[in-house]
Design a protein around this nucleic acid. Structure first.
Length: 267
DNA sequence: ATGGTTGTGTGACAA
């Protein structure tokens, strides 16, 4: 059987429902993980998802900022949420689901962007981002015996040289500073995570999931970064069939500045 | 080019 899972920083779920519906109709993932929903739970637009067979949701939202959600055709259980730094931000939710013979713990993260100054001593937003890296470092893909793991989301870090348009020019830019990139690569190796997006597309091929709104022509300039990620425990690696970055979505009407990433598995 | 754009929610902040 095939199973597919998508992640997308949507930058306001209510404003973007037309392109969310288009995405679901065209790609039909079994599970969609959203970040930056900017929507209180009681105002989350459930009906368009239910109409398409997504009867299960795990939502952690708040007014105005942040917010994450897992939208699923498969039942979700054992919901959990974390708040690294204990600042009251809705930036994580996790759930268990069953697919084929596997039980999977799915984590959906929205790591803080971290502001402009990459110095935790003077920039509390960067310190908060480092709290998330520390929290991720405490997570192992084999944390729960007998349960596989998938971790997705907008991690707001482009860890590899070819995850950005210019490694040299971005070394002092938040999202690609050494403390972030080395931190995230430590998380991947110490937690035994597989970086699924790089399984079939290793460096030096460029991979981007985000293009700034501020470019006059995002496509022509192509100054992208890979800020969105899909990781799994090693046991799921042999089941990975394909990873698609839906770059076209950056050109849809009223787009998010991030595009969806879809991982497809054969079980 | 130390700019530029977008969203929330109606002023300032986050990204």
């Amino acid at each position: 059987m095939q199973f597919s899972l998508a992640t997308w920083n949507i930058n306001s779920v209510r404003l973007r429902m037309p392109i969310v519906e288009r995405f679901l109709d065209e790609k039909q993932p079994d599970i969609l993980c959203l970040q930056e929903t900017k929507c209180p739970n009681e105002l989350f637009p459930i009906a368009p998802f239910n109409d398409r067979g997504y009867l299960h949701q795990a939502i952690n939202g708040q007014k105005g900022y942040h917010g994450v959600a897992i939208i699923s055709r498969l039942p979700l259980r054992n919901l959990d949420k974390r708040d690294p730094g204990d600042v009251g931000h809705a930036r994580h939710i996790s759930a268990l689901f069953d697919v084929s013979e596997k039980t999977v713990r799915l984590h959906n993260f929205y790591v803080p962007a971290g502001g402009d100054e990459p110095d935790p001593a003077i920039n509390p937003k960067f310190a908060h981002k480092l709290d998330f890296i520390a929290a991720l470092k405490g997570m192992h893909s084999g944390a729960e015996p007998g349960i596989s793991s998938i971790l997705v989301g907008d991690l707001n870090i482009a860890p590899l040289e070819h995850d950005v348009w210019s490694h040299k020019q971005l070394l002092k830019i938040v999202s690609h500073t050494p403390v972030e990139t080395e931190g995230l690569m430590d998380v991947i190796s110490s937690g035994s995570w597989l970086d699924l997006m790089r399984q079939f597309t290793p460096e030096p091929e460029k991979l981007y999931t985000w293009w700034s709104y501020r470019a006059a022509n995002w496509e022509l300039a192509n100054k992208g970064r890979r800020l969105d990620h899909v990781w799994s425990s090693p046991d799921l690696g042999p089941h990975l069939a394909d990873v698609e970055i839906l770059k076209d979505a950056r050109g849809w009407e009223k787009p998010s500045d991030h595009v969806p990433v879809i991982a497809r598995f054969d079980f």
